[in-house]
């Protein structure tokens, strides 16, 4: 076991966990932040996506010992980000969600895309969001919501 100081959504958190514990389980089990979802556990589906120093990161495969001082942003804190707020509102406006399980990961990836590419093409969206799976197949609405959010960004 080891003690780690993490910065999650701007707040300092201390956890005492095994160094090999994936960040996902530290968030969910130790910090009780269950907005970030467990999907596949092998970084194949994107449900566990968080931002690590601004990079969309698959938290299920990153041991907590490798986080270091990098700030973590989860779905619980993404509305504090101006682009994150626009994306969340757009998701509601376009009624994207069906079962909702994958959507926190979808939103985290969408925000990362719009931060890097504020006016994405359909190809940009397909490439960037292609690693986030949705078993309800809400892909068409995800694309609409992303385009809608992009139009609202200045």
């Amino acid at each position: 076991m080891a003690t780690y100081q993490l910065t999650v959504n701007g707040q300092r958190k201390q956890v005492n966990v095994d160094p090999s514990t994936p960040l996902l389980w530290v968030l969910r089990e130790d910090l009780k932040m269950t907005g970030t979802k467990y999907g596949c556990g092998i970084s194949a589906c994107g449900a566990c996506t968080v931002h690590l120093d601004g990079v969309a990161t698959r938290s299920c495969v990153v041991p907590v010992s490798m986080v270091g001082n990098r700030p973590i942003v989860t779905i619980e804190g993404i509305d504090k980000d101006p682009i994150g707020k626009v994306v969340q509102n757009s998701w509601v406006e376009k009624d994207v969600v069906q079962c909702g399980y994958c959507q926190s990961g979808q939103i985290m990836s969408a925000v990362a895309l719009l931060k890097a590419t504020p006016k994405p093409t359909d190809e940009n969206i397909e490439e960037s969001m292609g690693g986030n799976l949705c078993r309800c197949a809400t892909y068409v609405r995800i694309r609409e919501a992303l385009q809608n959010a992009s139009r609202q960004l200045k």
């Binding site: 994936p22 495969v61 041991p63």
Partner: peptide, 19 residues
């Protein structure tokens, strides 16, 4: 690509606990 860069999973060293 922005939503899925290499470093979304691949960190600075091998993560043997997650493979």
């Amino acid at each position: 690509v922005p939503g899925l860069v290499c470093m979304s999973c691949h960190q600075d060293a091998n993560a043997d606990s997650t493979g």
